[in-house]
Design a binder for these strands. Structure first.
Lengths: 252, 252
DNA sequence: GATGAAAATCTTGTATACGGGAAATGTTTT
DNA sequence: AAAACATTTCCCGTATACAAGATTTTCATC
């Protein structure tokens, strides 16, 4: 395939679509695909927040399909860990625990630093330009105060960077980790500023162009560390107040 | 033999169960779980071979459940990439391509070598003994000519080794890669001898006990290279003859 | 005998009905 | 008034019916 030669359309629609287009199976324009896209998009964009319940009936009515379709979509989202299904109790948007969050970032560090040699080896000028375009878009989104969009562009950046490694399996896995990262940020990054990323991304691109694998690994690892550190995972995690800590004071 | 003396029950049932027990969601004893276990097991054990069709009606009749249940199971297997679903055309056991196979092994190398530091750091004597027990079981299976069982024990070995890293997300991903490895061997390893593994596994365990991370990474990478090299992926891959290569000769 | 079109058959996609478990509400009892 | 129990309601799990697409078979034609 010679995608590397043709300058791909870089409009916003395409950028966002291409991410959600990562499919598991049939590409047919079936109903469940459309419903999946809508719900997936709502979760990623934090319009559905972790803990929100997802009753089959209500969703079926909303999208004017039967529960059959909704169930299929929810099961898929559950497999991708964006939704949590409890038997006989229904589905809700997943609420990552602190451990889960740390594991996700650890996995990202391992993978995103580990494939840098392949990325450098397979990099094309066109791909580099595409990545630069993405950082520009992210930068613009940040300047205009559109945090949500900036976050999506950031995810897209990491995704396309890893796609360069040419390993479909790893790309799919990272896609899952990225969407879960979005959930994690929804929970642990309330007043989150994506300020430092864009610079990091630019640094990454410069090192990528220079072809310095070791520096890339170093920078990427640091970048992910910063991302994780910017979250406040000490915050209360559970639905209920943390009674243990509250009543471990003088009065008890 | 007297199993009662062993620290943990290490009977075959437990060893095999624990692998397939890796679940995505609810642990309830629902129907689809049972059906899933049966079909999953049949695929892993190569009783269902890549390319075999999986019609919903026939399966529903076999397991005495409705198509609803079968569909749910097939969708889950499809998400795990063990089954391929084509719209309006039904499901079949996945038939990994050569590229897919190489990607799976590349991903395994990255992960299984990458977490060795964590594994060494978190290793316990009990876990080490469990791993030794697994290699013994694998060895015994090989000696008695039970290739199929040996393969499962080998997978179990890799799984438990990685589980020591304590990263649930990576463990789940590896579980998927391991079951897909089984499919790959079904396609590209017809006269496959698992001879060299057990020794490799023993070497790994010795290095693990010594706590030498670098040596472990080296050995594990080599081990996976050997596994991949033992496959004959030059063999004809597609159902149809490779017309491109055939007609790229002088005559065309 | 081979080719192509039309019909029949098979299989999946979707909707809907019914049964059952869990939570919520209301009632009774202490 | 509070707690325990009964009932109601809501929602999910499963089965089944019908519609639609894909494949195979059949048949006419060259």
């Amino acid at each position: 395939m010679n995608d590397s030669l043709k300058p791909r359309s870089l409009r916003l629609d395409d950028l966002l679509k291409s991410r959600s287009r990562r499919r598991v199976q049939s590409e047919g324009a079936t109903k469940d695909e459309q419903v999946y896209e809508r719900i997936f998009g709502a979760i990623i964009a934090h319009r559905l927040r972790p803990g929100d319940r997802l009753p089959e009936d209500a969703l079926a009515e909303t999208f004017e399909v039967s529960r059959t379709v909704i169930r299929k979509v929810l099961q898929r989202l559950a497999h991708e860990r964006l939704v949590n299904i409890q038997a006989k109790r229904g589905a809700m948007v997943s609420k990552p625990t602190v451990d889960e969050a740390r594991n996700v970032f650890a996995a990202r560090r391992l993978i995103e630093t580990g494939v840098m040699d392949r990325v450098v080896a397979r990099l094309t000028p066109a791909a580099l330009e595409e990545l630069r375009e993405l950082t520009r878009a992210e930068d613009k989104a940040l300047e205009s105060g559109n945090q949500r969009l900036a976050l999506q562009m950031s995810g897209q950046f990491h995704q396309q960077l890893l796609d360069l490694a040419g390993n479909e399996e790893l790309s799919t896995f990272l896609a899952q980790l990225l969407s879960r990262s979005s959930l994690i940020i929804a929970v642990y990054g309330p007043g989150w500023k994506g300020a430092s990323h864009c610079e990091s991304h630019t640094v990454l691109l410069n090192e990528l162009e220079a072809g310095n694998v070791d520096a890339l690994r170093q920078t990427m690892g640091q970048h992910l560390d910063e991302l994780e550190a910017a979250l406040n995972m000490d915050a209360v995690d559970a639905d209920l107040p943390d009674f243990k800590r509250i009543f471990n004071g003088i009065l008890d």
